[in-house]
Design a protein around this nucleic acid. Structure first.
Lengths: 345, 345
DNA sequence: CTGTTAGCGCGTTCAC
DNA sequence: GTGAACGCGCTAACAG
């Protein structure tokens, strides 16, 4: 009864301190310790004090692995983003993290690198960890991932784009509408030859939707759709600069360029500074996503404000509500966007 | 034996599919399923095929919670950063994530918001989740956190600064040395009145070390230490611009300014563009941390290159080696830094 | 409000 | 190479 000498592999020098240890030293049952820790009001003042004292004395940290196995619930939310480095995702992740923390949840983050197979593998791994909810920054999943998610009953929030038919819940803006709106905006400002620089299209429905929006707006504006005015570029300052230069050289009559990625736009703007091309005099520049940077450059850059932080916050709130028992119904929230007209157009 | 009707709260509509289920359907023992999944070579070809078939048929996902409880090990690494949004941390996190993933580990990320009490609470929570290792982007911990970490025997990597006496392992550069080197560099370029703009000093040993380095260099250069040339500013473009303007107005003879944060420096540079102050003609600008942005602005900005990605990679590698059985000895790796001289100085 | 009993789903250990 | 027994540390469910 005293202490079954835990023979060999005593890595910790004696095994973990358990709830029973605390219970024994506090002179109560393990169950009372459990309750005192997870639901203090359900235990009498006297008991609680004894437990707290023993907990402090031993520096006891409950084992949530054991707790999770027993209760069949974890307090861990899984999150898959295309890239951790990108500041756009970072704003969303931060918001999710804040809401999660306020509700006693933890975050397990993985990045898919824009690869659908990786997304699938990562979600599997997160499900194996029995996360209590998932946020996926992608809506174009592999077939196997769809099947996997269909079989699970944890809440799932998709974001990054507005899917026609969400798996469970979706919080996003429409990439199509946003790109169409900005292109239309440029048209109404009087620009006639509007270039479009897109991020890689492969495995990325968001990029494809943006391009579709661009062409839709051109049609609505009665402007010709010239495939030569569209360029695909990996994200980066240099790539944006490069794309702009090539567009201007091949299409000297270009008078505006819409970049489907903020870094691309800024790179292009700097290139204009270097070459002495007036912005918007020689060429107007519009961007996608309201990086803080864009309102401080010279000139400031017209862009689309996507409420990334709201997306994160609302996604997390949806998860939390579900975990608190909200009924399971499909949700599809369009957070919208906003055109921010600045000096560059 | 067939199936103990699992009465009431069948949330999943019948309870989880377990290893026993798979074993039964594959006609083997649960132990064989376990081995086939975690160490395939230890099982005969025939058994493995039967198990694999059943696993696929049922879409079985092993419960890592149960596995972790049983084996007393998790494959989850805990990570605490001051802020998820900041791109500096993002580069490090990405590198850690990559190494972790390559080694079958997952990441649980929390952000302390630069608050030491929060760091303490978050580490406690991560330890309760029984993470197998920790990376902390901070070296100035609360006393209670130090005690907590002293009692644990999981590997801990500290980063963000080079502590004199690491808790366990440390991978970083020296903020003091870096700031001293850049200030010295400016002095040797001939600048005589060098301003210094620091990020908030509270609860941030990194900021304080940088300021110390600045003053040490001034002394070595034989320049007077003028407290009026030092300003504290929260991070941000506008704040950097503001700080510069105030320094120039109160000290018209200032000829260079060293910003201990990249965003501050860029904000100041843009302000110079707006005001038509030549950089470095009127005032030279130096920054801290080699944001991609800094090599694309006009003019490009002199800065300190900190190998953030290496820091992440090596931190993760140290953890992995420990988990693989490397002996427990203190490690203190100085990854160094590099001065990148560009057009702004 | 408190205690008792009985697992949670797996891996360790030892026998075969 | 395979299986049976046992327990990881905690909480759900019920009884008092």
């Amino acid at each position: 009864m005293a202490g079954k000498a835990n023979g060999r592999k005593a890595r910790n020098g004696g095994g973990e301190i358990t709830m029973s240890d605390i219970a024994r030293h506090a002179g109560v049952s393990p169950m009372t310790v459990s309750r005192a820790l997870s639901d203090p009001p359900s235990v009498s003042e006297k008991m609680r004090r004894k437990v707290d004292a023993a907990v402090r004395q031993f520096g006891y940290l409950p084992n949530r692995i054991a707790g999770s196995l027993s209760s069949k619930r974890t307090n861990v939310v899984g999150l898959v983003v295309p890239s951790i480095r990108n500041s756009l995702y970072a704003a969303m992740v931060q918001a999710i993290s804040d809401v999660a923390r306020a509700n006693g949840l933890h975050l397990m983050i993985a990045n898919s690198g824009h690869r659908l197979e990786d997304e699938e593998a990562l979600v599997s791994a997160l499900l194996a960890q029995r996360v209590c909810g998932l946020v996926l920054h992608n809506t174009a999943h592999s077939r196997r991932l769809r099947e996997l998610l269909a079989r699970t009953d944890i809440p799932v929030v998709e974001t990054g784009n507005l899917p026609a038919k969400p798996i469970d819940m979706a919080v996003s803006y429409s990439n199509f509408d946003a790109a169409r709106a900005m292109t239309g905006h440029l048209g109404r400002l009087g620009y006639k030859r509007i270039g479009f620089v897109t991020l890689p299209l492969r495995d990325n429905d968001r990029s494809r939707e943006r391009r579709r929006g661009y062409f839709a707006a051109l049609k609505e504006l009665g402007l010709p759709a010239d495939p030569g005015l569209v360029m695909e570029a990996p994200g980066g300052f240099a790539e944006g600069a490069d794309a702009l230069v090539r567009l201007v050289q091949t299409h000297p009559d270009i008078d505006a360029c819409f970049f489907a990625g903020d870094v691309l736009a800024v790179g292009a703007l700097f290139e204009c500074q270097r070459r002495g091309w007036a912005v918007p005099g020689r060429i107007a520049i519009a961007s996608f996503d309201d990086l803080d940077l864009l309102r401080h450059t010279v000139p400031t850059v017209t862009t689309l404000r996507i409420p990334r932080q709201d997306i994160g916050r609302r996604s997390a709130e949806l998860l939390v509500n579900r975990l608190r028992g909200a009924s399971r119904q499909k949700v599809r929230i369009d957070v919208g966007f906003e055109i921010v007209q600045r000096e560059s157009t």
